[in-house]
Design a protein around this nucleic acid. Structure first.
Lengths: 147, 147
DNA sequence: AATTATTATTCAGCACTATGAATAATAATA
DNA sequence: TATTATTATTCATAGTGCTGAATAATAATT
């Protein structure tokens, strides 16, 4: 049992720092090893930055609500199957069951052009302030895919 | 606008074959080009196999409900953050908003050991027939991660 | 059966992600 | 200030996913 995924490691890091005071990256590496996750200080330095952890007198803590999921580009590439515009709305289609993953990834970008999203099973409704902005969003989403 | 994601291309393929009779992979390539997706017969041959399309007198059709999303290993690697067992239940934690993606990926595997799943925001409840099987599943899920 | 059309597969290459060794930079301690 | 501890960054590498050119295999047509 050598390697675990980055996501799983992040989950275990958060779990550990919530339960105990861990003050150094090597200490964290040792605690992670106990959960079956083997990694080095280098990787943990990166993880800590990605998770937005800060060092307090009580050890590492999560200050922001940084969620640690994949970024929007990754999610778009993996799940987005169609984009249609209807006035100030965009209808995004995903592979079945994956709409909420896409919606949350989009929400977390906090684009000004997105008023809100509603996710179903394979459809995300994206609300834009107006039709023109909806068109802009259409281009932007597909543009992300094309790069 | 050179390349689109595989997922988007799959979405456009399904959309095209639902709307018209397309009988050859080169014809499909030409129609895809009109939607902004440039690709070759080689890639489409692969896509057609992955999507489980069959050739009918009316062109390519989708016969099975093959969903075309990422496979379970990919989803586990990306989203799974913790696994806990409680009797015949497993509680899977994901990064927020991604529980249903994980649940659907698991459902699609159709493991005998999984009676059913319930997905929330960041938690998937997996129901096993008994506590022993729940333990087996625990090992299997983490084993997938470790390979 | 020969030819052409279509599809599937092999091989090569590229891009991207993730990780660790080594080291640089920074912080803490004496 | 010197030393030690801790963290961040650079460089290199491995693995994975994906794609297309070339070609092999198969199917359809003449």
């Amino acid at each position: 049992m050598a390697q675990m995924s980055k996501s799983y490691r992040h989950g275990q890091i958060l779990k550990l720092i919530r339960g105990q005071a861990i003050s150094t990256q090597e200490e964290l590496a040792a605690e992670l090893k106990k959960t079956g996750v083997e990694t080095t200080q280098v990787t943990l330095s990166r993880d800590i930055r990605e998770l937005g952890l800060v060092k307090t007198p009580d050890g590492y803590r999560q200050m922001s609500r940084k969620h640690g999921g994949p970024d929007l580009d990754t999610i778009l590439a993996e799940f987005l199957q169609d984009v249609r515009v209807a006035q100030n709305l965009l209808v995004l289609k995903t592979s079945p069951g994956h709409a909420s993953s896409l919606a949350i990834a989009l929400d977390q970008e906090e684009w000004d052009e997105v008023v809100g999203t509603i996710a179903g099973d394979d459809t995300v409704l994206v609300i834009a302030p107006d039709a023109g902005t909806a068109q802009t969003l259409h281009g932007r989403l597909l543009g992300n895919l094309g790069e």
